[in-house]
């Protein structure tokens, strides 16, 4: 559900804005957040993004290792260069490619705090929020959200996924 919501939000944005994805086509970008044991793999194919739990045999082109706060900051529009300067993230691979994906994540206005709260519980989400607010220098974009519409759509369709499974890497 977590990955599905991100995937849907991204693709909704891409389709509504006719976003050109050629620069990240056929690339796999991974995000790792150690503190909450979360890894997301973003695969771009056929003009859309798939959020998958494992790259299988495909090579990961760029990997980002973030902490809670920088993970949130990326979704809120922080520049990767700045986060790198402050040593809030580690990037292996092209920063440019990573930035393209990061910009998509922030443009699609995913309410990541709320999403995480559904799966880790409100306390972790609150801690995440607090940690994020400590990154003062990050450039934050306007947070108008399309996520509620998408979430409603998914929630009505969804039949009680087990929370515990999320961090074990299921959809």
């Amino acid at each position: 559900m977590f990955r599905l919501t991100i995937e849907k939000s991204l693709n909704h944005f891409i389709s509504a804005n006719n976003t050109d994805l050629t620069h990240i086509d056929n690339k796999v970008v991974s995000f790792r957040v150690d503190e909450i044991d979360l890894t997301l793999f973003f695969l771009c194919l056929n003009s859309r993004i798939f959020v998958i739990d494992s790259p299988q045999h495909k090579k990961v082109d760029v990997s980002l290792i973030t902490n809670n706060a920088s993970f949130l900051a990326i979704f809120k529009g922080a520049s990767l260069e700045e986060l790198l300067e402050n040593e809030d993230i580690e990037i292996n691979g092209s920063v440019n490619t990573a930035q393209q994906l990061a910009s998509l994540l922030s443009s699609s206005s995913i309410d990541i705090e709320e999403l995480i709260s559904q799966y880790t519980g409100d306390i972790v989400a609150h801690q995440l929020g607090q940690a994020f607010r400590q990154i003062k220098k990050a450039t934050i974009k306007n947070d108008s959200s399309i996520i509620s519409t998408l979430k409603d759509e998914i929630t009505t369709a969804l039949i009680a996924p087990s929370r515990s499974k999320f961090f074990k890497g299921r959809v």
Binding site: E7, F50, T156, A157, I159
Partner: peptide, 13 residues
């Protein structure tokens, strides 16, 4: 509901 979830997962545009 199962079918709605399938459609929601499809990424069809």
């Amino acid at each position: 509901l199962w079918k709605n979830y399938t459609i929601a997962s499809s990424n069809v545009k």
